[in-house]
Structures are given as structure tokens and as C-alpha cells.
Design a protein around this nucleic acid. Structure first.
Length: 423
DNA sequence: TCTGGGGTCCTAGGACCC
DNA sequence: TCTGGGGTCCTAGGACCC
């Protein structure tokens, strides 16, 4: 019975190829064969690469300045990240998937797991074709009896062009032989540290890992590692999660465009992040009971470093922007020290609860109806007229500290002024 | 010169209780 | 001066993911 259940499960992982790069290409087809990279905030790191750039050997997450010369030599097109665009394309792709399969788990901006128990590989081809037709985004599909195996199948689908972007790990294959071709570092859930540890014990590939005794794995790789190993053996430890869970923490953090050394600018930036985080909180109908504010210098520079965190527990859980800004400013004042060059600051809201019931403070004198009215008013104006249409004075006007984005593409699908023109 | 941001889960260890 | 055992809860930090 157990083994029947085991084999009745079938997961598909749909993963967009080089997603951010593909989004940029979708609106500039002339870039189809050009090497392209998309940069992180502040134009710092390379976070998406076209196949041409991958074949040059540029690694994921590399700082652009170290590779600029080589990329220029290949006439690489460089984009700053345009998350409104990528988010919009992503939601279009997810809606197409949802039309094909009700059991869908949106795993990340460019990936989704589907319950494929009753689907064929021909069906996968149809899904792939439809996404290309509607969005111009190429996707790869991996199928397996566990999510971990579907991930590996997806990797194979991407790697070997002869499969047309679709690969299934099923009972007809010599799975042990296939797993022995997969490096442990390429397994979902095995990161840098675990790879080093496994290497020290002579474990190089997925097959060797799958044969280790449970107790050893539990001891060295914790319970999460054991789940990964079970999944390599075809025993599903994780199912499709249909419902988008409420986030348990909400962060807004940024590096500055340049080093900041004065309190007023830090107060402006932390106010801005606080307002943004408060908005995210309200968008998921939550309250936060805890705020954490941090501040640090540039860890890559050979200078005297400073890093400090301040935690505050709210008297009562809140989603009220002024309350969150106040806590953020008082925190930053508390941890700020004169004489340092600061590179990054941010806030994290946690202790998240539903806004349906609000635990009131014992001595609270807050007027909740008034707070709600103000929240709704601000959100209403900003939703209609743009996210900065109305803002708090503490966020500053000039905001010189803001991140740098010099190669931004247009917001083709989310801003009417940026809509594409056809001549 | 130039190095992202936003999440989740797990564990160890401290505080506290009886 | 000597000073147990067992439990819970919380938090910081690490590892991992995209």
C-alpha cells in the first residue's frame, strides 16, 4: 500500500529559462541572440544571465565590475532590474498554468510545481507551447515522483537540448545511474556548506547521498537534509501547497547609492523602508508585533566596521504607518554612531498576525478607526496615482541616498506612459 | 571606484518555571 | 557552604532558497 502511494505521486516543476533576461527579450526581440545580463538593485550583482553569458563562464551573483571588461568584449547588453515588469509577466504565466492545472504551487517568481498525477508529457508540451505563445517566455518542465526529483529532471531538461525542455524521471529509467551523474551541489537543499561537508566524507553525487544511512544524514544534515535524501529515493516528503501562506516576516532593506554618514539621511531612508513594509503588511491583511532595525557599514571595504540591530516589541500589533515609522526612527537614532560610513540599512517586521482581530494594549489610547481611515486614504491615493503620490515628510524629498539604476528598461505592462509603440 | 533583496526553516542556548 | 531534573518558550544565528 505504501509503495503504491509512493509511486502514484507525480510532480512537474515549470521553471522559466533565464527569467529576467527572457522578460527583457520579450519586449526587444532584436536581442534574441545577444548576450544579456540583468543586475541587482544598485546595479551591483549579476542576477540573471542569458545562455551566451553563462557559456562565457560568468557565475550567478557575480559583481558586475569584476566582469565588465569581458562582458563588453562580447557586446553584452546590460539591464538594471525591473521588478514591476517581471512580477507582471510572472503573474500572467501563473494564470496560464492555473488554467491547465488546479493543483498549482507558485514556488517563486519564475517557478511553479504542478500536481501531474494524471498528466502526460504531451500535456507538458502543450503547456510549454501555450506559455511561449502568450508571453514569449521559454520554460523548461521537469517531472518526477517527488519535488526534489522534479527539480533534477528540470535541470536535465535545461541542460540537454535534445529533450526540448521537457524531461521526466520515471520508473523506466535507471535512476541510480542517472543520479550518479548529478553533483550533490546541484541538489535542491544542498548548499555550499553541506557540499563541503559531504565532500570531506567522499560523497560526490546524488546516488551516493541517497545511499547514506538515515541516522548519519539526520546527524550531519539535520531533518531537512534527511527529507532531501528521502525525496531522492522517491519518497515524497513535501506536497503541493495550494494556498499562499501569509508571510511570517516582511523586510525592506536597501544598500545606498553612496556611503551615508549622517543621521538625517538615515532617518529618511529608514522612514521610507518602514512605509513600504507597512504597505506590504496591509496588502496581506496583517499586523506586526515586532520591528527590527539594522544598520551597517560596507563589509567589502577594508574600513572599521560597525553593525548593530535594534528590536522593539510594539505595545499592540499594528499596521499603522506612523507607528511603524516612529519605531524605526527611534531605533535608528538609538544605534547610530558618529564617524562611520554606512552602506546599508533596513527593517524587518515580524510577529505577524491577522488584522481580523487586534489585541489592544491595556493602557492604549489609540483611536483605531482613525488609524484605519488614514491607512485607507493613503493606500487609496497611492494605488491610484502611483506609489509615491503621497508620502510622509520624514521620508525626505530629494533622497540622494537612493539606489542607483542606470540601465532600467521601461515598465511596458504596468505603466501607461511606457506602453510599447508599434510603427 | 564598483559587491542585492526577501524569504523559510532548523538548532542551540539562555531565561524561566516548578 | 553544599545546590536536581525536567520542561517550555523565545531568540539569534546559520543554512538554504530564488
Amino acid at each position: 500500500m505504501l509503495s503504491m502511494q509512493r509511486h502514484s505521486k507525480r510532480f512537474a516543476l515549470i521553471d522559466c529559462n533565464n527569467f529576467y533576461v527572457s522578460c527583457e527579450r520579450a519586449f526587444q526581440p532584436k536581442l534574441a541572440d545577444r548576450p544579456i545580463v540583468v543586475l541587482s538593485n544598485n546595479d551591483g550583482c549579476i542576477i540573471s544571465r542569458s545562455n551566451e553569458v553563462k557559456s562565457i563562464g560568468v557565475p550567478m551573483g557575480a559583481p558586475i565590475f569584476k566582469w565588465r571588461k569581458i562582458l563588453d568584449r562580447y557586446s553584452t547588453v546590460v539591464f538594471s532590474s525591473n521588478f514591476p515588469l517581471y512580477g507582471d509577466i510572472s503573474s500572467r504565466i501563473m494564470s496560464i498554468l492555473a488554467e491547465y492545472c488546479a493543483d498549482i504551487e507558485v514556488y517563486s517568481i519564475d517557478e511553479a510545481f504542478l500536481n501531474f498525477a494524471n498528466c502526460t508529457t504531451d500535456f507538458a508540451k502543450e503547456v510549454q507551447h501555450m506559455i511561449m505563445k502568450c508571453t514569449s517566455i521559454p520554460v523548461s518542465i521537469g517531472i518526477g515522483s517527488t519535488k526534489t526529483l522534479a527539480k533534477i529532471a528540470n535541470k536535465i531538461a535545461k541542460q540537454y537540448l535534445q529533450y526540448g525542455g521537457i524531461f521526466e524521471i520515471d520508473g523506466d529509467l535507471d535512476i541510480d545511474n542517472l543520479l550518479s551523474t548529478i553533483d550533490v551541489s546541484d541538489i535542491w537543499g544542498i548548499g555550499r556548506k553541506s557540499t563541503i561537508l559531504l565532500d570531506a566524507y567522499g560523497i560526490k553525487n546524488a546516488y551516493e547521498l541517497s545511499k547514506l544511512p538515515d541516522r548519519w544524514v539526520r546527524k550531519h544534515l539535520t531533518i531537512t537534509g534527511l527529507r532531501t535524501v528521502q525525496e531522492l529515493r522517491g519518497i515524497a516528503c513535501s506536497d503541493i501547497e495550494l494556498h499562499h501562506a501569509r508571510k511570517k516576516s516582511i523586510a525592506t532593506t536597501r544598500s545606498f547609492g553612496y556611503e551615508v554618514n549622517n543621521l538625517p539621511e538615515l532617518e529618511q531612508s529608514i522612514s521610507t523602508y518602514a512605509a513600504r513594509a507597512a504597505k506590504k503588511l496591509r496588502d496581506q491583511s496583517s499586523l506586526a508585533s515586532h520591528i527590527s532595525v539594522f544598520l551597517h557599514t560596507n563589509k567589502f571595504q577594508d574600513i572599521i566596521q560597525y553593525h548593530q540591530v535594534r528590536n522593539i516589541i510594539f505595545d499592540e500589533p499594528t499596521d499603522y504607518t506612523p507607528a511603524i515609522i516612529n519605531a524605526a526612527i527611534s531605533s535608528i537614532k538609538h544605534i547610530y554612531k558618529d564617524g562611520y560610513q554606512y552602506k546599508k540599512t533596513g527593517i524587518v517586521l515580524s510577529g505577524i498576525t491577522s488584522n481580523e482581530y487586534q489585541q489592544k494594549g491595556l493602557f492604549s489610547e489609540n483611536n483605531y478607526n482613525r488609524q484605519r481611515t488614514i491607512n485607507n486614504l493613503i493606500d487609496g491615493i497611492n494605488n491610484k496615482w502611483g506609489s509615491d503620490a503621497i508620502f510622509f515628510g520624514s521620508m525626505g524629498i530629494k533622497r540622494n541616498w537612493r539606489t542607483v539604476q542606470n540601465q532600467h528598461s521601461r515598465s511596458y505592462t504596468t505603466n501607461i506612459h511606457d506602453i510599447i509603440e508599434v510603427q
